[in-house]
Nucleic acid binder design. Structure first.
Lengths: 246, 246
DNA sequence: CGCGGTCACTGGTTATAACCAGTTGTTCTG
DNA sequence: CAGAACAACTGGTTATAACCAGTGACCGCG
């Protein structure tokens, strides 16, 4: 059998090879369960008669869309599910449970450390004054959904590092006498940085939902700043829901 | 001078070539103004002594992050600015003006057409009943910010296609006796599809903020469905802001 | 039996090359 | 002078190739 050869642009049918392969791989993935492995890249290039770079391109697109997951040395796997969250001062754990998932939290970092400018400014820290830095991976059914990076006031929370930080942070703040009463936050779409991507098990550059949050405690308006945080959610496993009226 | 040659992995300094080049290109872009062109890919490979695929990789990352913009046949350009929107029933135009941008709207499609299942379901259309389909590109200072794809009820709006659709759609609905009183929407991060990417002048796969919206009119609760829409916003030019309290 | 090394696999990076398709500017012809 | 054709540029796609680094299984040695 004579092999047809191509150095660029669309195939005979007018469709780009990587787009066609992408669809083919989607179909292949649908016959598998979450966590199951696809054939390796070199196998796929034999199976579909394309170059490895075309295979990688098709897989990269699917990885970015959250349909596939790649692990160096191990392979490429079928991906997971999604949570929809209403915007309110609810805990991650409650949201996950409401959606039928089993939440858990892995504390990656809990330390006193010098905060970035935005956090220092919100927490009204002067000079090189340190703040608590918590970096936590939030999971649903043991699959990563978000990375929360929080900076907290050491003045208000002298014993924070002695607390159990694997549950709701807001519950911990409340039990310490500092319930979060008000939050200002922004939401945007972004591309996952390399280290966040690794934690969330997504490709660097995959779309993520990014929250920047400034939290306040105390009864007065606007309240005393207590937390500055950046939360990064996997786009395939988390979205926001709301009702607006006038 | 002897050319050093590499077939993979990190350079002598331990840093991946495409990451180093990415930083170098960021610096180069900072010396330019939005809209100004970078040197072409083949020039960049000469300038930085890397292969074209490495140049393309570095540029792709910056395009995905919204820092650069690529146009086939024309070149690669420095990118634009950002709007922050509070979640409310405000118009796109008002939001843009509030942020100091000059809004405009380009109507790409305005037709009667068969709606997708989700739109038909919301609008309570039966069988093959058509709906109005509006596809509009929303711009700020003549640069694309979002693509709005709306499906509207022909029953409530018999003369919609005769209206001026380059302003606020909600104002048109209001003037037709059907003010939007309530909206249910979800927000997620997603990767731009090829056709949306083209309209928004971003790379296919770049992160975008995706709104799915169900709008209701009329005084009763929940109201009469009048619009189903999907809006896709460039992540580098649009984000959401909110205050939550308890 | 346990640990370390090797091998065969995995994905990741980078190279050169070829070709396609879009854009723009210049030149030639009617 | 206007339009068409051509050339030189642009980014986009795909190929083959080489090498790197991670993973897991298997084998050999202590």
């Amino acid at each position: 059998m004579e092999k047809t050869h191509s150095d660029g642009s669309a195939s005979a049918s007018g469709e780009l090879k990587h787009l066609r392969l992408r669809r083919q791989l989607q179909e292949l993935a649908q016959e598998l369960k979450p966590g199951e492995a696809l054939p390796g890249e070199r196998q796929l290039e034999e199976m579909f008669g394309v170059s490895r770079i075309t295979v990688r391109r098709a897989i990269s697109d699917l990885v970015r869309d959250g349909e596939l997951v790649r692990e160096k040395g191990k392979g490429t796997f079928v991906s997971h599910g999604m949570v929809r969250s209403v915007l309110h001062l609810a805990s991650f754990n409650d949201d996950m449970r409401a959606a039928g998932f089993q939440p858990s939290t892995r504390v990656i970092t809990a330390e006193l450390s010098e905060p970035p400018e935005a956090a220092a400014s919100h927490l009204r820290l002067t000079g090189d004054a340190p703040a608590y830095r918590l970096r936590r991976l939030r999971l649903a059914n043991n699959a990563p959904v978000s990375v929360d990076e929080s900076w907290l006031s050491p003045e208000l929370l002298p014993n924070l590092l002695a607390e159990d930080l694997t549950g709701s942070l807001y519950r911990v703040l409340s039990a310490s006498g500092h319930p979060v009463r008000r939050v200002q936050q922004t939401v945007q779409a972004s591309a996952a940085s390399a280290d966040i991507a690794r934690l969330l098990e997504i490709a660097p550059g995959a779309p993520v939902l990014l929250f920047h949050r400034r939290s306040f405690t105390g009864p007065e308006e606007p309240g005393t700043p207590i937390e500055y945080s950046i939360s990064t959610y996997r786009s395939d496993r988390y979205q926001i829901s709301m009702t607006l009226a006038q």
